[in-house]
């Protein structure tokens, strides 16, 4: 798969979020609080970056209630997984001297 720079994913926290979600099984979701502890972000910061990724179609966010408590779950979409794979390929191309560097 040809690599290409994805400026949206390349932001450090978004990269961590995408990598974390990519470690799960296809369509597997993770709770917001769990994701927050893994990527070590604040509620507001994580929420903002997730909105950006959701608008790009890279993540799917589901909100529901469990035992009357709100629950937010996040999963990587097929497009998101493909975009991350392409971005990783681009990063590897740079290290191997295939892609142009600055």
């Amino acid at each position: 798969m040809p690599g290409e720079l994805n400026g949206l994913i390349h932001q450090p926290l978004r990269l961590k979020i995408m990598a974390t979600l990519n470690a799960l099984s296809p369509r597997e979701a993770i709770e917001f609080t769990r994701l927050k502890s893994i990527v070590e972000a604040t509620d507001g910061n994580l929420g903002a970056h997730l909105s950006t990724l959701e608008q790009a179609g890279y993540v799917q966010i589901e909100k529901d209630f469990v035992a009357k408590k709100p629950r937010t779950r996040v999963a990587l979409t097929r497009n998101g997984r493909r975009a991350l794979v392409q971005h990783v390929a681009y990063l590897r191309d740079i290290l191997e001297g295939v892609a142009p560097t600055d």
């Binding site: 390349h10 990269l15 740079i94 290290l95 892609a99």
Partner: peptide, 14 residues
């Protein structure tokens, strides 16, 4: 484009 060091750091973060 990004530098090789930045690419290496990003891959390490992933």
């Amino acid at each position: 484009p990004i530098s090789t060091q930045e690419a290496a750091e990003a891959l390490s973060d992933i």
